[in-house]
Amino acid sequence: MSDLRALYEEVILDHNRHPRNFLKNPPGATHHAHGFNPLCGDEFSIHLKVEDGVVRDAGFEGAGCAISTASASLMTEAVKGKTVAEVEALFRGVHGMLTHEGPAGEVGKLAVLAGVQEYPMRVKCATLAWHTMRAALEQRAETVTTEDPIPNCGVGHAS
């Protein structure tokens, strides 16, 4: 139970129950992207309002598990007010923390997501919103997925 609590942190459960910036497409939003993990069914749209290189507002829509929902919710809070460069640094920091690919940078409050790294099959849940947000910033139109073509994930796969 103790390591389960590291995954299902109170903060994560709270953001799952009451997602922030949810069902929100900020007026004047400039950047949008769609993320979908077909094996899991997790699906989110991310909306950003970027002005003068600063993310002024952020929101998301969709549905997913507690980890993906909380990660999206925490992310929308964290990116607000940051410059695009700072958001990119945050992305790298969170990505590094979750996947061990690259260094884990300063992530502040997002450290609550660290428990996910012990659950390799759930990492893709936590990273979906982040990759989708990055696609929005880069104005990429194609749907984003964090499910490997060679999944290390048995969740929802086959049969």
Partner: peptide, 29 residues
């Protein structure tokens, strides 16, 4: 109130292996 993937992870913690997902039957979902 609980997504199937969260169910899967937590019951796995208890040693119970079940499947969560669309079971290759998306029209049924």
């Amino acid at each position: 109130g609980v997504h199937p993937h969260d169910i899967g992870t937590i019951v796995d913690h208890e040693g119970v292996a079940i499947r969560v997902g669309h079971h290759c039957a998306m029209p049924v979902m």
